[in-house]
Design a protein around this nucleic acid. Structure first.
Length: 429
RNA sequence: GGAGACGUGGCCGAGCCAGGUUGAAGGCGCUUCCCUGCUAAGGAAGUAACGUCGCAAGGCGUUCGUGGGUUCAAAUCCCACCGUCUCCGCCA
């Protein structure tokens, strides 16, 4: 959520920023208007309330003196004020609800450092580990869904039987590799990040806090009976972990990481990139998350990017880092870097991590503040998030990249400690 | 899921049955100052967040789990919901 005071005092600057995303600007004008009428209405209401309170005290005092006539006359007067107060209050409620609805649907302002561009065509590649299309042998140009079937480590057909298309099932050494990836993602960040295992079913307010509601309701699974949402990422749970709290500056930054399942309806993506693990409704992910002061934001952003990138690099995967154009940054982010790995079998780049600095956009929604040391009052914290390791696509890239001419799959060395002695998934006999 | 008890400020804890001068006694903690003098004790003052108006000082409003209702007036009365605890049931 954007700061209403900023929209009020400098609507043109806000519009200029939002325009870089290619989002419509008309709601900003509506917000300014609604805000003005809300304030004038609530001022009027508050004045009447004040008068009612004063009058009521006098009524009590008069009764205490035994002066019933005068007390009743005053009470009558107060009653008429009450009617007016009610009307104004109802108008305030309506205006506030409308204003909030509009505000919740405005995306964050992109950072001035984010590249221009309304689509992914404006994305800027900032690093590439050295992609060479000729570097792959034929044995690596087999897509993971075929390898998975050959080695019986990925069973798509049976998963579809259970849950429908775009659900998958890992089996045998495939499931073991998945488990190793999760452990790897958590363990290498344990030096600085507190491991959390949050709920994966959350209330609507929790989804609003991270920015996934109300705008993206179609992308999420909703359990109607209990009005709970299945999280699309643990970012949702972690954002609201300190909701409503005022943190101490000395405790910042707070670094958290969580492994959870993630659930996505992928409503707009039917039929696109749906083979194998490219896009699935349920997947495992280790997420990094941080709350910090505005001053700490930039360095933390770089730190999380570096941690995510080095995890991929150490697995030996060809990858690149992309600085997202304004129009390609998701709603809550002000600046986002994506990490993509190259999957030689599927023959395409796969997005495996999205590292975002959300400034105070999420903390305003979830109401998370901190007390700056030596200053009065409170301020909203900044929040950042990024995948430490998103399992399916990394799993796919490993299986394809590490496939040997005999059809076996050599496990990356950094995973050995988590594989219980397995260094190679054997070729089919 | 059933029965009972309970939800007050940073914490503890009065107030609620008899609605009014209670934004809320008292204590603890914390901050500043004084005394004393040495890591104690004592004394004084201060000690929420948010909204809005104001250059400011400050004014006004909201918040006693949440949301409604009754009333001139609600922490106090009524209703619903949420949560916590105890016992029972069920279960991993």
């Amino acid at each position: 959520m954007l700061d209403i005071k900023l929209i009020r005092s400098d609507p043109e600057a806000v519009k200029a920023a939002i325009a870089r995303r290619g989002e419509p600007l008309s709601s900003i004008d509506e917000i300014v208007e609604l805000d003005a009428s809300l304030r004038s209405t609530s001022t009027e209401r508050d004045e009447i309330r004040s008068e009612i309170r004063q009058t009521s005290k006098q009524v009590g005092a008069l009764h205490a003196q035994g002066n019933a006539d005068e007390a009743n006359a005053l009470a009558d007067h107060s009653r008429s004020l009450g009617a007016r107060e009610k009307t104004l209050d109802e108008r305030c409620e309506r205006l506030a609800a409308e204003l909030r609805e509009l505000l919740l649907n405005v995306s964050n302002m992109p950072s001035p450092d984010a590249p221009d561009g309304l689509t992914e065509d404006g994305n800027v590649e900032v690093r590439n580990s050295g992609y060479d299309p000729d570097a792959y042998g034929d044995h690596q140009k087999v897509p993971h869904w075929e390898i998975g079937e050959q080695l019986q480590i990925l069973d798509v057909d049976r998963a579809v039987r259970l849950s429908g298309s775009m659900f998958v099932m890992y089996r045998g050494d495939g499931a073991r590799l998945l488990r190793a990836l999760i452990a790897y993602g958590l363990e290498r960040n344990r030096d600085a990040f507190e491991e959390v295992r949050p709920p994966t079913l959350v209330k609507s307010n929790t989804m609003i806090g991270s920015g996934h509601l109300p705008k993206f309701a179609d992308d999420a699974y909703h359990i109607e009976r209990d009005d709970l949402w299945a999280i699309p990422t643990s970012e949702v749970s972690l954002t609201s972990m300190f909701s409503g709290e005022i943190l101490d500056e000395v405790d910042l930054p707070i670094r958290l990481m969580a492994h959870t399942s993630c659930y996505r309806r992928e409503a707009g993506a039917a039929g696109r990139d749906t083979r194998g693990l490219l896009r699935v409704h349920e997947f495992d992910k280790v997420e990094m998350y941080a709350f910090c002061t505005p001053e700490q934001g930039h360095d933390l952003h770089m730190e999380i990017l570096d941690r995510a990138e080095s995890a991929i690099r150490d697995l030996g995967l060809v990858h690149r880092v992309v600085d997202l154009a304004c129009g390609d940054i998701s709603g809550a982010g002000a600046r986002t870097f994506d990490i993509e790995v190259f999957a030689p079998g599927a023959d395409r780049w796969l997005e495996v991590s999205s590292i975002s600095w959300c400034t105070d956009y999420q903390s305003r929604r979830a109401n998370i503040r901190y007390r700056p040391e030596g200053a009065k009052g409170t301020q909203f914290v900044h929040s950042l998030n990024g995948s430490a390791l998103a399992v399916p696509r990394v799993w796919a890239a490993i299986v394809e990249t590490c496939r040997q001419p005999d059809g076996s799959i050599e496990m990356p060395e950094v995973l050995h400690p988590y594989l219980g002695g397995l260094t190679k998934i054997p070729a089919p006999s």
